[in-house]
Amino acid sequence: MATRIQVSGLDIHYDRFLAVQDVSMDIEPRQVTALIGPSGCGKSTLLRSLNRMHELVPGARVSGKVVLDGQDLYGPDVDPVRVRRHVGMVFQRPNPFPTMSVYDNVAAGLRLNHRRMPRSEMDGRVERSLRAANLWTEVRDRLHRPGSGLSGGQQQRLCIARAIAVEPDVLLMDEPCSALDPISTQAIEDLILDLKSSYTIVIVTHNMQQAQRVSDTTGFFNLRAAGEPGVLVEMADTTTLFTRPAKQATEDYVSGRFG
């Protein structure tokens, strides 16, 4: 299920503005890859180009290659909708569907993919996803209450359950803990470590301790200069990047001597 992602020569535009330039990197399966870097350097933009969400912004476009399982996501006859069914995403702010119950939130993706799934199988998948998201015991008694009634941390785990219910190959997370308290953050981090055995996970984070706690590989992004596009400065296994970085800019950033 988990899949390798090979990014090569990726340029990402918003209209005429080049936000990210010439990124090439390999993202390994069954690993957690963290993307770090200062605000505005294009981490979210890059992440959203991995499931073709980027192009939903009017005028936005991508050139270069993102190869998933041997297939270029930006190939001529690739349907972005199918891409997104294989590459799930969790956002910075928890975004359960407010009018849907906990159950329906988790089932939402399944209903898109398998219209005629029998009830019993659906129940099973929903329970499995909620268990995998470490949420089952907390919501088993209120599966049919609104998902927006949960706490922020629970909502975020609900969103993770919703994303993994469709059994994607890759899970993208854009600062999934930045709206959460330390306890909920801990819960999500534990969850990421659990999920790593079955998914390729890419996480954007501003929290360098978090990157060190959860990731195997870390990529450091930076603006080439103010007003210039963001670039991938360096990518290495997490311990190396944080203790013996190859580039001075990385060293400055991870040691807090940035700017």
Binding site: L56, M89, N95
Partner: peptide
């Protein structure tokens, strides 16, 4: 946020409208 929740699940535009826009 709600629109993207649908998109990210692999909704088509009409499915996104049904899941996010119409309920809202």
């Amino acid at each position: 946020l709600h629109e993207e929740a649908s998109w990210a699940l692999g909704a088509t535009r009409s499915e996104m409208i049904r899941m996010s826009v119409l309920p809202f």
